[in-house]
């Protein structure tokens, strides 16, 4: 499974302005709704918030990976946002997040869900990868950066 294949240019929002993490979730979920990944925006956001309650998805290094398996999801997909300012996500290392990956998966899609999450977690541990994401000029750039890193790690 490739992260790149779960994303699309249309679901990459660069220099998004948002005050709170919930705003970011909403913006990304709307994009996934447009692409037919999420069928019910409110229901899905509720499940994301529920998951967040169990423990922060702010994994540190300025990155957050909010995620939920939900009845409201039709097929697995990913959306990414880069915010203009860092947003408090109660991350474990105290950093504010400016890079968000939102993972949506249907209720029964355990495998793709865990793979996406673990793959992202691995990718994000590479400093040059995070650097490149922050310097990306366009959604196309982001996809290229991800593709390159995935190739390197496979």
């Amino acid at each position: 499974m490739n992260i790149k294949d779960l994303l699309s240019e249309g679901r990459i929002l660069l220099d998004l302005t948002a005050d709170a993490k919930e705003d970011v979730w909403k913006a990304l979920t709307n994009k996934m709704y447009e692409d037919g990944i999420v069928e019910d925006v409110e229901a899905y956001l509720k499940d994301v918030a529920e998951r967040e309650k169990q423990g922060t998805t702010g994994v540190g290094f300025g990155v957050a990976i909010p995620h939920a398996k939900s009845e409201a999801v039709k097929s697995a997909g990913l959306a990414m946002a880069r915010t203009a300012q860092g947003i408090d996500v109660a991350s474990l290392d105290g950093t504010k997040a400016d890079i968000f990956f939102l993972i949506a998966a249907p209720k029964d899609a355990d495998k793709v869900y865990l793979q996406a999450l673990s793959k992202l977690a691995r990718l994000l541990m590479h400093e040059n990868f995070r650097e490149s994401l922050r310097n990306a000029k366009s959604p196309r750039d982001v996809l290229d950066v991800i593709e390159k890193q995935e190739e390197q790690m496979s």
């Binding site: 998805t57 865990l114 691995r122 994000l124």
Partner: peptide, 8 residues
Amino acid sequence: TGIAHTYM
């Protein structure tokens, strides 16, 4: 939880 932190 066996997900993100394990792999990171």
